[in-house]
Design a protein around this nucleic acid. Structure first.
Lengths: 223, 223
DNA sequence: CTGGAACCTATTGGATCCAATCTTGAATCT
DNA sequence: AGATTCAAGATTGGATCCAATAGGTTCCAG
């Protein structure tokens, strides 16, 4: 549902492009999204724009106020924390379901990604590279999930928190990145051994650790 | 988001009414939902109908095929099983988050519901009553959840499986109902003691047991 | 000068019209 | 007889037009 259809209708295309622009930061949280402006930008009429906004609202990326307008969704610290708590239970399930269906080639690629992530922690940190590779690593571990709604949910949660991960990863130390990637290696180990419970436990721990690292309860500078 | 807005716009109204009709079984899984027909039925134009269908698709209640039409969603045994596995991890989280915010009055009402459910297992079983009360009981245990997306997810999963619960509860024995309600009593006990972990563990067990009762792997008469 | 109310404008929501696509049925060919 | 192709009808998707609502501005009164 969040994936692209082969011959997508126009509303779908607009939704996909707009989603990409939001995730890349072209449209920032809190920014207003006028229908006319969007229709103009995407060379479409207001109709597919309206459908796209509906869809992105369902995905949690924008919020619509009737008769008023649409804005790129904002998260506060509470929602961020809660989303991570959801991730802590949902993503372990996702690896459990995924592991039996992962190909050896996919697992090899996971190994490469761990090494590439290590490289981003080098002398001059590559934060954007880390974000991209981290996302690719985790989503690839879920590539074996056959139940689309579960995959959609995972994707949704990654998307709605994307902005804030970027913001907070920038504040992380190099040690944090290395520690994070140690988790990745352990998750990968569980996957290589095709041990769903072990991998799931590691994913849970990883997300919990990340949440604690990112959301410092004494830090009210968030958002 | 799945709840009703006070002064909803027309598309929202249509979505709410259509959702109710689907859940009550007026529209059955697999049935086609023509836009013209719906617009006629709800005294609206096709435009709000289209928005409503989009929304219900996001909720998983209907599925839209571009340029072809919309049908009430069907679940197969696999999807049913997978949804229950999601419920097994999501709803324990929901009670954990809910318990601190439940009022004493709400907890008292839960006690009443357990008794009312017992009554449905009497000499002439009241299956529809059971379905209604069971739903009310569980959703009330989640009434303290402050994070709307979590509540929405729970509601969504209840809604998409509603039809199949009805179908399968009809096949259950009286003993099954009594056993189910014993679980309810244990969940309620955890809530009364304001013990999130205990309640969460019971919810997990309850859903797991229900899944095993409902989905007999050797039974291919499902759907 | 400040608070409030009425008006005006910009933007969204809904209705209608037109175009594009899919489904269907029948006719034809193998 | 069965499968395939083609065409007609029906239905959805998109564009445009109109109505309703919200927010801002201005004007008036206290």
């Amino acid at each position: 549902m969040l994936g692209e259809l082969p011959s997508a209708i126009s509303g779908q295309r607009v939704a996909d492009e707009l989603r990409r622009l939001i995730l890349e930061g072209e449209f920032k949280p809190g920014q207003r999204l006028g229908q006319e402006m969007l229709a103009d930008r995407f060379n479409a009429s207001r109709m597919p724009v309206r459908e796209a906004l509906r869809q992105l609202e369902a995905e949690g990326l924008v919020s619509i106020v009737p008769h008023s307008g649409t804005w790129v969704a904002k998260l506060d610290a509470f929602e961020f924390d809660q989303t991570y708590k959801m991730r802590e239970v949902v993503e372990p399930l996702a690896v459990r379901e995924s592991i039996p269906n992962l190909s050896d080639a996919q697992i090899d690629r996971l190994g490469e990604l761990v090494e590439e992530i290590d490289a981003t922690a080098g002398p001059h940190r590559d934060v954007e590279g880390f974000l991209r590779l981290d996302r690719e690593f985790h989503l690839l571990t879920y590539a074996g999930v056959r139940h689309q709604p579960l995959l959609d949910l995972v994707l949704r949660q990654w998307n709605t928190t994307q902005h804030y991960r970027r913001l907070l990863v920038h504040r992380q130390s190099v040690e944090d990145v290395v520690a994070t990637n140690l988790d990745h290696a352990l998750i990968l180990d569980g996957i290589r051994r095709r041990d769903p419970e072990s991998a799931a436990a590691m994913v849970h721990l990883h997300i919990r650790r990340t949440r604690n690292t990112l959301v410092d309860p004494t830090d009210d500078t968030f958002v």
